[in-house]
Design a protein around this nucleic acid. Structure first.
Lengths: 209, 209, 209, 209
DNA sequence: TATGAATGAGTATTCATTCAT
DNA sequence: TATGAATGAATACTCATTCAT
């Protein structure tokens, strides 16, 4: 390996680290200011950079948004996959998958904000570009896939499995919204328990049929 | 009643009418431009006013948002109450209440945007003052109350009834989110049907117990 | 006349004065920085305003450009018309018109810069909008019209008259360019004299025919 | 000659080649994007370089502009010289020189843009250093010289010859400006014909005297 | 009440240039 | 020589809000 090769490798590594620093800064800004307030300037300032400097690492603000969202969905998918991997029976896997989905967002509220961003704003997340939008769509779908798989393993048809998946997602999302904004307190109820009970019910229904 | 009293009353009435005109304009702007496009300038223009003029009627842009949101929740409450009023049995009332909630937002996506605006951003709704926020909290609670009442009429304890309410709300909210952003298409499933089936299941569970 | 009428009139007058102040500032910036450097910020600063403030008086930067150009062309037209009006014979009018055109720009080099702006940049003055562009085209045409009219009075056909006009314009513009940039010094020649002699020649040709 | 001398020579030659490559790229960018779009970044990209790399070959963006302009004037000079070389009589040479000047820019509008860049902006060409400016001045003078030479061969005094040169240049420049911006269409006249007729007139005048 | 004018902060992106490597 | 990263200034325009009138 030549000296220039080594230097190039080092440069690439340094560059990668800086990208990560910027993405971290972006995540922090998203958390504090909300997604609307996450301007390029704000992200740059948080990262200790000039706005112009970010353009050496990302082609646009949208690209930063996209990367942060993609990483979040990746972590979600991993969390669900890990949870499913630990279980042997289909029923346990369904439970694990749904609860992992719920739990991931319950534990990481900033990822929830990011996720809601995806699901907001008259039809499509404004300014995310059709292509990126579809990528993210797919990533979300893949994260939830284990739920449908477990349902099918429990004897559900593909259509029924999709229905189970959508219901689990919707229930979780709604509960998370209530919990995240504190409004669930109004009803003196635990989001975690509600989710738990709901999924148990889903599984019971499936096994009965 | 003195002359000045009468004059003061007239002034107050005129003022109230103008407030309504502005709120109407705001709603129209929300409808057409969405929440992001609803700038004070746009609302003022739609109302036939100068931006500055609005400050005689509302202390801030967020106050206008809040008032429009309150009215939206009022219409929601009314829609749910009307639906419930048409039914005789507790089961039918529960079904009617939950589906009216879902249906209201399915038919009025802009009201859904407003609702999400309320349920967004870190923990606290940023712009809205604490007082208004609690008012809105209450308005939402009242709109959903018939669900809990029907559940109790079906034999549920107050705690169980609250649980039913929260579940119904969460399920509806999650499905609406998926439908509103078009992402439900990904799963080839109908939000309306999912909601329908879910509430039927809730009722069956309640009646069995 | 009511008090509010008077107040409104005063307001309008004040507004008009401010518009003029901004246009003056714009002209000064054009002069010092050149047209490319004439940013909204620069104009605002020169006028003692915030950039945003200009938007109460003009809808866009382009509108400011346009108004300054239009006024310049108006002054040109007036100068030519005045000169022509002082002459009795067609020959004298042709001479007066052509020399007034030349003289206007010789004496007002900043108007020359503005005029060149109109005649620069691959085909159309960038960022001037087709409509405004055509208005300015027309204004230029009208300023030069007296040349063609005088030529026709000297017996030229409409086509010949247009040819005379174009030639006079081209000659003047070329000489002004050379003079304006000081490059004419290289040839130890007086632009004024060259123009003078050229127009005399044009007239002689016309009268001979 | 020492080994180091030979190496130095090779280095210099390589350097010269790279300069030419960059200038070629600059010309191509001018051609496609026009003067305004010819940013350093664009030129660098077209040349296959990083923007920073250009600074090893040119001290500034304006220096590149200047060099491209110098080459343009060189080609102009050559075109005029070639045209003149093909003619035997003084009258034909004058005609050929003036029309070659006009024709060169009529056919190469981007060179005209460059030329106007030289003849613009207040008094002094802003970016170009004084030295380069004078070089360009000279290059222009040399390109036009054949016109004056032919005029003298036709019996004109040196002063008269300079006058003829300036007039021919001015007329051509003015017509080119009108043609280049399309404004000549307004007058339903052909720039080429106008120029042709004008030079014929100049020659006739000279031969008559 | 209402307006017109004004502000100051903010929007994403581009630019020529510099510098350590 | 050449690069990648960085800067600081610039671009036109929008925003909610304030204030004198």
């Amino acid at each position: 390996m030549t000296a220039t090769n080594r230097a190039a490798g080092r440069r690439r590594a340094v560059s990668e680290v800086k990208r990560k620093l910027i993405l971290d800064a972006a995540r922090r800004v998203f958390e504090v200011e909300g997604l609307e307030g996450a301007s390029l300037r704000a992200i740059a300032a948080e990262a200790g950079y000039t706005p112009a400097a970010l353009y050496f690492h990302f082609p646009s603000k949208e690209a930063i948004y996209g990367e942060v969202l993609r990483e979040s969905l990746d972590r979600l998918r991993q969390a669900v996959a890990d949870a499913v991997g630990r279980e042997a029976t289909p029923a346990a896997r369904l439970k694990a998958a749904a609860m992992a989905f719920f739990g991931f967002y319950a534990v990481h509220p900033r990822d929830l904000d990011l996720g809601f961003y995806l699901l907001r704003g008259g039809m499509q997340p404004r300014g995310l570009g059709r292509e990126l939008d579809e990528q993210l769509n797919l990533a979300l779908g893949q994260a939830l896939l284990p739920i449908a798989e477990a349902a099918e393993a429990l004897g559900a048809s593909p259509e029924e499995a999709r229905s189970v998946l959508v219901d689990a997602f919707a229930h979780a999302a709604g509960l998370l919204m209530l919990a995240h904004t504190g409004r669930i307190r109004m009803f003196a109820v635990s989001a975690q328990q509600q989710m738990d009970r709901y999924v148990d019910g889903q599984i019971a229904d499936l096994m009965q049929a």
